[in-house]
Design a protein around this nucleic acid. Sequence first.
DNA 1: ACATTACTAATTCGGTAGGAATTATCATCA
DNA 2: TGATGATAATTCCTACCGAATTAGTAATGT
Lengths: 149, 149
Amino acid sequence: MKLSTKSRYALEGMLYIAVYGKDKLLSIKEIAAGTTVSPAYMEQIFFTLKKAGLVSTVRGAKGGFALGCPENEITVGTILRAIDGNLVPVPCAASLSACKSKVRSNCVSRNVWIRISQAISDTADKQTLEMLKNQFIQEGEGAENENIH
Amino acid sequence: MKLSTKSRYALEGMLYIAVYGKDKLLSIKEIAAGTTVSPAYMEQIFFTLKKAGLVSTVRGAKGGFALGCPENEITVGTILRAIDGNLVPVPCAASLSACKSKVRSNCVSRNVWIRISQAISDTADKQTLEMLKNQFIQEGEGAENENIH
DNA sequence: ACATTACTAATTCGGTAGGAATTATCATCA
DNA sequence: TGATGATAATTCCTACCGAATTAGTAATGT
């Protein structure tokens, strides 16, 4: 079971904007610096997020990124799906047409994957950026350069 | 989000044994034929399952495989973990030591991954081979060479 | 400054191949 | 008959390979 780093970075970037980008645009450089991802890579990620409408951009000097929707409407699920396409760990669970199997017992297995997919989606969709932001604030800011868990 | 084919084949193989291997040993050849996976590949997978104690084996001519535990004690989760190591889609969620981040906001993200991992594990551990076998039987056997969903 | 494309190095995945160890079975022969 | 040995069937275990994907950089356009 594996989730791409892109997805992870995307969430971190979005969270960064939610926390620090309330009243100003944030440049890729800032966002990247705040998340220890290389600017070039983060830019690539944000381009995808932009296409999905999850962030809005302003071009040119003093330009930058802001959230594209209210933060209580952006869930972890939408972010992950924007990057990875879907949250389904097994193609055959995504759609009937992806399941070419001629072995009947596979349909039982398929139900297993569907249940798991459902659990993933449910959990991911239940968490909004707003919630995460609040968790972040609540846990106290500062302590930037330490490894806290 | 991606799950390896090995995991999927492992589940299918195990289900096959649960259904058809009640009172006899099944050879890799049979299992592979029943699941449309190449014998060589399936053998590799079952070698791993064997090491994990999920199947028991008899070597030599007339040898073969059987379940290594009662089918109501084998869950989808144990099978997947036996093959893929763990069910955690993000390394940092697996253990504290895997999380090297110095950025505090990552700890909030980390909680997201932990919740998702938990959801996956819960769903996977809730389903036993016995349950799947019953689903298989209940849905009616036969109709082997058709694509049913 | 953002937008977009191209490139690449490394890793992982999916799968194959092959040989060694182990056992059942059956033919052979004293 | 009963021991013996060949052989066929089967698991065990490692090594390997090609293709795809990933993670990330670079360069270029607007």
